Amino acid sequence: MHARVAAATAIALFGLDVAILPTPHAGAAGGDRLVVVAHRGASGYAPENTLAAVDRAAAMGFGWVENDVQRTKDGRLVVIHDATLERTTNVKLLFPHRAPWRVRDFTAGEIARLDAGSWYGRRYAGVRVPTLQQYMERVSHNHQSLLLEIKNPELYPGIERQTLALLDKEGWLDPSHLTDRLIVQSFSAGSVRTVHALRPGIRTAYLGTPQVKELRAYARFADQINALYTKLSPGYVSAVHALKGPHDKTMRVFAWTVNGADEARRLDGFGVDGVITNVPDVVRTAVTAR
């Protein structure tokens, strides 16, 4: 069903195996049609949402990565999934009396001191929580594309405008990036609407599964529906594909978080356009072996 995936050439760079990739495009990480997105970077093989996970995805030949963006007490944007720091850092050790250790209660300088890798394994001891600027610099260096999630926007008023300003500063809102290298998503429909209103040229995605009768309303501000894979069916995917999004192109469907080969093949059979996964190599092998 799919064309073979060209192998990426890896070289040693600063002691890391980093893939030399072509400029990513819609199908660069999967077959000719299916996009394979490394969830929080290649988080099945490196600590999530870190530069190490971005580099691991690149070394494996994957052009698309996904991340989560939140804001610190002093207004800096950082890349981390949870609203609290406890699960993926040593914050309890360094700041034992600061429970519940919310991201928004710590400054960027304090977060920069945290170890965000040891929980995953000793080889990643000392890996840090990156700022969004650091993250964008690494994604640009690796010639990757980004599925950026605005996380918990209700906790961070104005985070959409701030995120877009940083993306603009980093050169990510020019035509070449907007065409096929950036998608902004959120579980908040209001946040997705805000992004679309502020920068209509950006491809946007709503995280969730609106009822079929509601899809036309979502198509006014979302280019795609990114849904939990267990909520999808062939009929639902077809219903999304029957509509055009705000850029007058067929709406797309990405499924998350798909980590099994059988699940990947089943969703590929449904006609989804992309799969978000912690183990992108497993998905790539599954869908290209059909």
Rank of each mutant, 00 (worst) to 15 (best):
M1C: 08
T9K: 13
L13N: 06
D17Y: 05
A19G: 15
I20Q: 14
A28S: 15
A29W: 06
A29V: 03
V35K: 15
V37R: 00
A38D: 10
R40L: 07
R40G: 10
Y45L: 13
A46I: 09
E48P: 07
N49V: 11
N49E: 09
A53D: 06
D55I: 13
D55Y: 03
A59F: 01
F62T: 05
G63K: 00
R71S: 01
R87H: 10
K92C: 11
K92P: 03
L94H: 07
F95Y: 14
P96K: 11
H97L: 12
H97S: 14
P100M: 08
R102F: 10
G117P: 04
Y120F: 15
G121Y: 02
Y124F: 15
T131P: 02
Q134L: 09
R138G: 06
S140R: 15
E149V: 09
E149S: 02
E149C: 11
K151E: 00
P153S: 07
E160A: 13
R161S: 10
T163I: 06
A165W: 00
L166G: 00
D168V: 01
G171V: 04
D174I: 13
S176W: 09
S176C: 07
H177L: 08
H177M: 13
I183N: 08
V184I: 15
V184W: 04
S186A: 13
S186G: 05
F187W: 09
S188G: 04
T194L: 03
R203K: 14
R203L: 11
A205G: 14
T209P: 00
L215K: 02
L215I: 07
A217T: 13
R220T: 14
F221R: 09
Q224K: 10
I225C: 05
T230V: 12
S233A: 02
P234D: 05
P234C: 03
V237T: 03
L243A: 00
K244L: 08
P246Y: 06
T250D: 07
T250Q: 15
F254R: 01
F254E: 05
W256R: 04
T257E: 01
N259L: 07
G260W: 08
A264G: 11
R265S: 07
G269D: 10
D273S: 08
T277P: 09
V279E: 13
V279L: 15
V279W: 11
D281M: 01
D281I: 00
V282I: 13
V282H: 09
V283N: 07
T285P: 06
T285C: 04
T288A: 03
T288H: 00
A289F: 02
R290Y: 10
